[in-house]
Simulated scan of single mutants.
Amino acid sequence: MSEPALAPRNALGGVVAVWATAFVATVALGIFVSEEWRVPWLVVAFGGIVLLSFAVQLRYGRTQGFIFRVAGSVTGALLLMGIISVGFGLAAMIPT
């Protein structure tokens, strides 16, 4: 088991998959959850994203760069969720 992988899988795919999941979860929460419950559910969704990031990177099966890949996944998802939630917050300020 100590032999290096001849053709390791691309780790960027797992990072992008976590970002895509964060995007879909944030947009779904913004659309389907009422305004007063949106922030608590975004926190719960971000916790799920962190767990998903660990699971995806553990499935990748390489120890080299594990922390870097998880940090990239989580940081990118946090920024993405923050930007989208700011958009929903600004949209909520517009009177109907």
Rank of each mutant, 00 (worst) to 15 (best):
M1Q: 03
M1V: 12
S2W: 11
S2K: 14
S2E: 12
E3H: 09
E3S: 10
E3R: 09
E3W: 04
E3Y: 14
P4H: 07
L6V: 15
L6H: 12
L6I: 15
A7S: 14
A7C: 09
P8R: 11
N10R: 12
A11G: 07
L12E: 03
G13V: 14
G14Y: 05
V15A: 05
V15F: 01
V15C: 01
V16G: 02
V16C: 06
A17R: 09
V18T: 13
V18K: 01
W19A: 11
W19P: 14
W19K: 11
A20P: 03
A20L: 14
A20M: 08
T21D: 05
A22P: 02
V24H: 00
V24G: 13
A25G: 08
V27M: 12
A28M: 12
A28P: 03
G30D: 12
G30V: 08
V33G: 02
V33R: 00
V33Q: 04
V33L: 05
S34F: 04
S34W: 00
E35C: 00
E35V: 10
E36C: 00
W37F: 09
W37S: 07
W37I: 02
R38A: 02
R38W: 10
R38V: 01
P40Y: 00
W41N: 07
A45M: 01
A45N: 06
F46N: 05
G47A: 09
G48R: 11
G48S: 07
G48W: 07
L51V: 15
L51F: 09
S53K: 02
S53M: 05
S53E: 02
A55Q: 11
V56Y: 08
R59I: 14
R59G: 02
R59L: 14
R59D: 08
G61A: 05
Q64N: 10
Q64I: 15
Q64E: 15
G65H: 03
F66D: 03
I67S: 10
I67R: 09
F68G: 08
F68Q: 14
R69M: 03
R69K: 13
V70F: 06
A71F: 10
G72T: 09
G72H: 04
S73D: 06
S73E: 10
T75A: 15
G76Y: 01
G76V: 06
G76K: 04
A77Y: 05
A77C: 08
L80P: 02
L80M: 13
M81A: 08
I83E: 06
S85Q: 14
S85A: 15
S85L: 08
V86G: 04
G87S: 10
G87Y: 10
G87V: 11
G89N: 10
G89T: 13
L90D: 09
L90Y: 12
A92H: 11
M93S: 14
M93E: 15
I94F: 09
P95M: 04
T96K: 12
T96Y: 00
T96P: 12
